[in-house]
Amino acid sequence: MRWTVPNVLTVSRVLAAPGVLFAFLLLDSPYADWIALILFTGAAITDYFDGWLARLWRQESAFGRMLDPIADKLMVAIGLLVLATFSVGATPLYLIPASVILTREILISGLREFLGEVKLHVTRIAKWKTTAQLVAIGVLLSAVPLAHLTGAEPRPVRPGALAQPIGAAVAWGGPEALPVWNWVVASGLALLWIAAILTVVSGWDYFRKALPYIHGRER
């Protein structure tokens, strides 16, 4: 493996993913929230630049192609875990799309392992779903830092929030919280649902393309 700039960026993304978790384990809020947001945002930005630089400088490698999707999945999985544990909590508005995303990623990873040497090209919608996942998680991670900047006090959504009016259901701080707090959380949850829909669509597209190879191995 050559230590090219694109490969270094990809490896840094792998290291940043657990760094988001350790920020919350080792530090108190709001320091943990700020560090986690900076780590996640920086790593998400490298998701674009490592591939772009590899193509621009003709430094594409088997190592980079192998590690790049793993880094993406680590960021998404750990980001969702951190939000459920330290921020969003057990609200259906969050847990449903998060579970859909994780289920799809595990199923498609198992399908790729089954196909072995058969390589299916990454589609445009698969790139969109990854971008949507990273943006949604980044927005939700920014909610606590923005709340502290505006003076609002973050409080977890109650488990029964799905049955409440949408204005209160999406607000950790409830109706009395500052408007920016409501809008950040609402935007993050909306983006997460969009990401979940794109995740399902891209997963079905991948499975559909893999079906001929699956049938071929059963004969």
Results as ranks from 00 to 15, higher is better:
M1I: 10
M1G: 14
M1P: 07
R2N: 12
R2E: 13
N7C: 00
L9E: 05
R13A: 11
V14Y: 05
V14D: 00
L15Y: 05
P18I: 03
P18E: 05
V20T: 13
S29C: 00
P30M: 09
Y31H: 09
I38K: 03
L39N: 11
G42D: 14
A43P: 10
I45L: 15
I45K: 05
T46E: 07
D47W: 13
W52T: 03
L56M: 12
E60C: 03
F63E: 00
R65N: 08
P69N: 09
P69V: 02
I70Q: 00
A71P: 09
L81W: 15
L81V: 13
S87C: 07
V88W: 05
P92W: 12
L93W: 14
L95M: 15
P97K: 06
P97F: 06
A98S: 14
A98M: 10
S99T: 14
V100L: 15
V100C: 08
I101R: 11
I106A: 14
I108L: 14
S109P: 00
L111A: 10
E113K: 08
V122K: 02
L134F: 11
V139A: 06
V139D: 03
L141G: 01
S142K: 10
A143N: 12
A143V: 15
V144I: 15
A147E: 14
L149G: 01
G151S: 12
P154D: 08
G160M: 00
A161N: 02
A163C: 01
G167A: 09
V170W: 02
A171G: 05
E176D: 12
A177V: 04
A177G: 05
L178N: 04
W181T: 10
W183G: 07
V185F: 15
S187V: 14
S187E: 02
G188N: 12
G188T: 08
G188L: 08
A190W: 04
L192R: 11
W193G: 02
I194S: 02
T199G: 14
V200Q: 05
S202P: 06
S202Y: 08
G203E: 12
W204V: 15
D205E: 14
R208C: 01
I214Q: 05
R217Y: 13
